[in-house]
């Protein structure tokens, strides 16, 4: 028994078993159930066990699905580009411009303060701000920049993206900041000694070394945006749809199998996206 427990093989399994158990019960099992139910059929009040491709047939046969998926990708891509630009700049400033470590931590914590409040509150607080008679419009009007309130500030794609950027930029800042802090400063000195300009150092040294952080941030932002439904509903005033809203509509109408099928397609799509991203950068190797 003693020897058995000391064998590295067995200890390894034992150490891994708690997390394996948790994942099996709370991740694998639910996903398997969703997959199973996606092949069931539904009447108006009940779901009926079956093995039918009806849900998938309807999903792939409807032009709405393609439009909605396209819209979801569009939100993800635009949000990704903006959060990356913001996140990289903020992280760069924190890591390379702020010299004192104390100030680095203070400023970094400052960035996280908004995240102490609820996601939904932070999003909803935009609504009165951006509204027709909101602070943004009245300020712009009193400065004489516009004559009539800007309608597209609220209940538009602009509002949706704005909320996404606000909600998710930190998920980009943190991993990028983290990898930047690990960059050996002597590499930067070496680059400078070798005659590289600031821009050349950025492109040839810092960006390649920050790639894993960028990739982790990207995975966070893309999956969060693709899985969201409440932000799109509130900020677009229910006027735009993404995949999450399609699923939530189905659930509201008790069409669980159809919702499950849509969820499976979304899951597979997100996995493909992440798979493709991981092909670009080997996170494990670079961490």
């Amino acid at each position: 028994m003693q020897r058995l427990l000391k064998s590295p093989h067995v200890t390894g399994w034992l150490l891994a078993s708690p997390v394996a158990l948790v994942l099996a019960v709370f991740l694998i099992l639910p996903i398997v159930m969703i997959a199973v139910i996606s092949f069931w059929t539904a009447t108006e009040f009940a779901i009926v066990p079956a093995f039918s491709f009806e849900n998938y047939q309807f999903l792939f046969g409807s032009s709405v699905t393609y439009r909605v998926f396209l819209n979801t990708f569009r939100y993800a891509a635009i949000t990704w580009a903006i959060t990356l630009a913001l996140g990289f700049t903020i992280a760069y400033f924190l890591a390379f411009h702020v010299r004192s470590q104390t100030w680095q931590m203070v400023l970094f914590l400052l960035c996280t303060i908004p995240f102490l409040t609820s996601n939904i509150i932070r999003m909803i607080s935009w609504i009165p701000f951006l509204g027709r008679n909101g602070i943004a419009n009245s300020a712009l009007m009193s400065w004489g920049l516009i004559d009539a309130p800007l309608e597209w500030l609220l209940f538009s794609d602009f509002a949706v993206i704005l909320a996404f950027v606000h909600l998710y930029t930190l998920f980009m800042v943190v991993p990028i900041f983290n990898t930047m802090m690990r960059i050996d400063r002597s590499l930067l000195e070496a680059a400078s000694d070798a005659g590289a300009s600031g821009f050349q150092t950025l492109v040839n040294v810092i960006i390649p070394l920050t790639k894993p952080g960028i990739m982790i941030g990207t995975i966070f932002v893309v999956t969060l945006v693709m899985g969201d439904f409440i932000t799109v509903r509130f900020m677009s005033g229910s006027q735009s749809a993404n995949v999450g809203r399609l699923i939530s509509n189905d659930i509201a109408l008790l069409q669980y199998p159809s919702a499950a099928a849509t969820a499976m397609v979304l899951l597979v799509t997100v996995l493909i996206v992440i798979g493709a991203l991981l092909r670009l950068v080997d996170i494990r190797k670079e961490l």
Partner: peptide, 25 residues
């Protein structure tokens, strides 16, 4: 009508309809 921008928003819950109306949206 929706494509032509007729609607400001759609509402699903009671309080949403109240806020849309009260704010003048």
């Amino acid at each position: 009508a929706k494509r032509a921008g007729q609607f400001r928003a759609f509402w699903k819950t009671f309080d949403e309809s109240v806020n849309l109306m009260a704010s003048g949206e």
